[in-house]
Design a protein around this nucleic acid. Structure first.
Length: 135
RNA sequence: AAAGCAAGCCGUCUUAUCGCUGCUCUGCUCCGGCAGAGGAGAGGAAAGUCCGGGCAACACAGAGCAUCGUACUUCCUAACGGGAAGGCAUUCUGGCAACGGAAUGACAGAUAGUGCCACAGAAAAUUACCGCCUUUGUAAUGAGUACUGAUUAAUGCAUAAUGACUACCUAAAAAUAUUCAUUUAUCAUUCUUUAUUAUUCAUUAUAAAAGUAAGGGUGAAAAGGUGCGGUAAGAGCGCACCGCCUGGCUGGCGACAGGCAGGGCAUAGGUAAACCUUACGAGUUGAAAGACCAAAUAGGCUGGCAUAGCAAUGGUUAGUGAUUAAUAAAUAAUGAGUAGUCAUUAAUGUUUCUUCAUUAGUCAUUGCUAAAGGGCUGCUCGCUCUUGGCCAGCGGGUAGGUUGAUGGAGUGCAGCUGUGAAGCUGUGCCUAGAUAAAUGAUAAGACCUUUUGCAAAAAAGGACAGAACCCGGCUUACAGGCUUGCUUUUUAU
RNA sequence: GGCCUCAUAGUUCAAUGGAUAGAAUAGAAGUUUCCUAAACUUUUGAUAUGGGUUCGAUUCCCGUUGAGGCUA
């Protein structure tokens, strides 16, 4: 496991995604949030004294069905968000010291219209910096 | 060639980099996975969830009722509210017509019953009302006839009066008769006008009775339609044609069509996407169903150890009592003896032993109970707080995982059967399988569309839309392109 | 994923299949007032949408769109 500490990897395997229903519920009920248009970011810090150190947070991307009725649009935005995170993962993770990394992060798309990939990337970086300052 | 309509088909492509999810192979592994290579990875509607089926769990003797759905016929199909072929109706259209063509149709039943049909209208379904017609009564008006009265005029083998003549008689006269005249009066007839009465006819009004359903401004809809006859007036009352109903016949598997005979038209208005009737069908719930594996945790269960209580049995220990036997010392008595001392006895004491009883403890076994301690009030009940252990096994089961779950009522081609939907045979082909949920992002190019532009080129954009167990349909959305057929127009030969 | 309900003026609601679709309130204009408020008068709907049944549809039936709810 320690060998996968390599930040240079642009991979985004399943361990780095948030899949557990329970932790999602916990995140949405207890997590603190940061808001930068067009995102809202929910995060949950690591449980105190947990022995095993995850090298990366578990991330979840979400788009509201109310704002985007069609599944095609939701899929497109989620894919763009995922790519933005994946391609900038190294930079983003190095910005935060390892012990301060949140355990789980939910990235929620708030805007009501589609945004192109470049600006999406920029906004993702700014909201991540806000998260760093808050933590 | 262009345009329109219809049917069918396709529905962006290529490369690079970085990724995502399965599959196969190889290697490594701490057996959880990891690495490398190869190859695969959204649709015609994947959508809506409107029908139907598979599959699964539960329910279920059978039948009926209720509820829901379907509704021209025959066929196709696993099934269907889908499809095919037909029938009928409506609309449009070609044609002089016969006869076609196209589109649409929730297209069973209103002659089983109930309900509703606003406004208008006589009336919305029983027929009633008005009206028409006939008869009768009454009234009025008009006409005719008759009677009566009045009136006017005319007429008269009428009457009377007067006069004359004649006859008779006579003195004369009167009277009588005849004839004539007169015109007065009366009467009669006719006519004019008028009145009354009666009657007849007509009209009107009114009342009653009978007939009738042709007509009655309306309305979406008015009790078969049109014509002729017929009638007091009318009426299928009769007849012709059309429509309707009934029953045979012929053709068709059938829906139905054709024709014949009869009924004379009624229990016949519309509405069943009003209730309803008839026939047929439907058990309920959905893959987040269901099946399996299974951490952690927990007053689940079982066993063992430990704990607390109660009861019984047995063992053991101790005490007490009784009993039996033994017994040293002390005490008492007796004897020997001055005494010490010695001996004997004692229903006395002590100790030990046997047996029995009882009490207490402890142990074991068995059975039962789980509680115990504290607080609130002294007790009971009640409430409340603390403790309620350790080990092993088992069961259910949470997180999680596996499965269900992707090759099938699949599809291209050919042949055969069938009008066709479709079926059968042969042969070839195909292969998404995610699970907070992959199938992408970026860059470059090609293709297409739009805008600007003479052009070159530039800019913007790439339809509708994303599998979630699977399949058959239906519905809805859709830029653009291709093929075929039909129609129209233009050009050329 | 599955199931159910609803849609009427700007807003909140009403309506038996029967016709100009009402009520309250808001908005606009006017009257009143020195001005405002209050009061009074007038005005504002393609009944979400497209079809069908019916003589006639807000109402009945079908399709589409949107909103809300239930289930796990």
């Amino acid at each position: 496991m320690e060998t996968t500490q390599d930040f240079s990897s642009q991979k985004f395997p399943k361990q780095e995604r948030l899949t557990s229903k329970k932790t999602i519920e916990e995140l949405f009920s207890k997590g603190s949030s940061v808001f930068v248009y067009p995102f809202r970011l929910l995060y949950l810090p690591k449980p105190f004294g947990s022995s095993h150190l995850p090298s990366h947070p578990q991330v979840l991307f979400s788009v509201s069905k109310k704002h985007f009725k069609k599944a095609v649009d939701r899929n497109l935005i989620k894919r763009r968000m995922r790519e933005a995170y994946r391609l900038n993962k190294r930079e983003l993770l190095q910005a935060i010291p390892t012990h301060q990394l949140p355990a789980s992060v939910a990235l929620i798309y708030i805007a009501k219209e589609k945004i192109d990939f470049a600006t999406l990337q920029k906004k993702l970086k700014t909201i991540w910096l806000r998260l760093v300052n808050n933590a």
